Simulated assay, not measured.
Amino acid sequence: MERLSSGEFFGLTSQKLETGGLILTDTVYTHDYVDWHYHENAYFTFILTGNVIEGNKKGKVNLSAGSLLFHNVQESHYNIKPPGETRGMHLEVQSHWIKEMCPDVELKEGSCEVTCARTKILFYRLLRESKMGDDLSSLGVQSLVMEAIQPQFSRSKESGFRPPWVNKAGEFLHDNYISPPTLKEIAAVAGVHPVHLSRAFTKYFGCTIAEYIRLLKVERAFSLLSTKGNSLSTIAHCCGFADQSHMIRCFRAFSGHTPVFFRQLFKI
């Protein structure tokens, strides 16, 4: 079984940025099939355009634009690329960086798909920062990575207890953000009183319910930007925004830039 060293991926790598134990690569996948292999470092794969199928010990997972996958160190897998261009950004995290920056965490075993909308938007911002190419890029990358990956590690010194209603509310909003439910409907599904839901939601999600719904809309819009032929007005409609202007305002609020700015990044 082949072992890939730091910064090495199958395909055509157009950019590699290394900074203090973090390695970012921007790669176009050129192989229709990649046999079983593993990587030297733990890393994240973020699909920017296209599709890829990854197989591992647990089975297969279909990844499309906007999908984010975490691989623990030396986790073996294989890849199948459907027809069309597929491009991915990889974030490798070397062991010495983890020990220095996150000494009280343990990496999750195996491979797992990351579904958190906030984390995915941070990875889009990470792509933007990696393209800045100035003397602040390393600082920007380090800061964004710290913010993005902390929730993905299981802490060994903290219980991390989350009441069952938290996941119920989150899943319900994930399934219904295009036509948002009322506060009473969310509370009924979660099994808690609307007052408790309103007060406690920010503690577990880091924002209000309304802000979280906007976040889900923006994350979905990001994934549609890379598809050719999708106009901004079409994307806004598909994601449940009032109109294109509403989507642009939300984009700026969560990412700091407009949809057009990020659409250009996908073409670089």
Results as ranks from 00 to 15, higher is better:
residue 32 D to H: 09
residue 141 V to F: 13
residue 143 S to V: 09
residue 156 S to D: 06
residue 45 T to P: 01
residue 26 D to Y: 15
residue 135 D to G: 01
residue 154 S to N: 14
residue 4 L to E: 02
residue 117 A to I: 07
residue 204 Y to N: 00
residue 199 R to T: 06
residue 103 P to I: 05
residue 227 T to W: 04
residue 239 C to G: 02
residue 192 V to P: 11
residue 30 T to L: 09
residue 164 P to H: 07
residue 158 E to G: 15
residue 65 A to V: 12
residue 43 Y to T: 00
residue 85 E to C: 05
residue 127 L to F: 13
residue 212 Y to D: 03
residue 133 G to P: 03
residue 101 M to F: 11
residue 64 S to F: 03
residue 90 H to P: 00
residue 98 I to C: 06
residue 93 V to Q: 04
residue 188 A to E: 15
residue 191 G to V: 05
residue 176 N to A: 08
residue 83 P to N: 02
residue 197 L to C: 07
residue 139 L to V: 13
residue 171 E to R: 14
residue 267 K to T: 05
residue 68 L to K: 00
residue 144 L to G: 06
residue 136 L to A: 12
residue 38 Y to F: 04
residue 169 A to G: 03
residue 9 F to W: 15
residue 178 I to P: 05
residue 217 K to P: 08
residue 90 H to R: 10
residue 241 F to D: 01
residue 187 A to Q: 01
residue 108 K to Q: 10
residue 237 H to D: 10
residue 162 R to S: 11
residue 182 T to K: 11
residue 168 K to M: 08
residue 27 T to H: 06
residue 171 E to C: 08
residue 102 C to S: 13
residue 240 G to M: 02
residue 23 I to C: 13
residue 55 G to C: 10
residue 152 Q to V: 09
residue 83 P to V: 08
residue 32 D to E: 04
residue 268 I to H: 12
residue 200 A to S: 12
residue 11 G to V: 03
residue 48 L to P: 09
residue 194 P to H: 00
residue 230 N to D: 00
residue 13 T to I: 09
residue 77 H to Q: 04
residue 134 D to H: 09
residue 73 V to E: 15
residue 86 T to R: 02
residue 78 Y to C: 04
residue 124 Y to V: 13
residue 266 F to Y: 14
residue 170 G to Y: 06
residue 174 H to W: 06
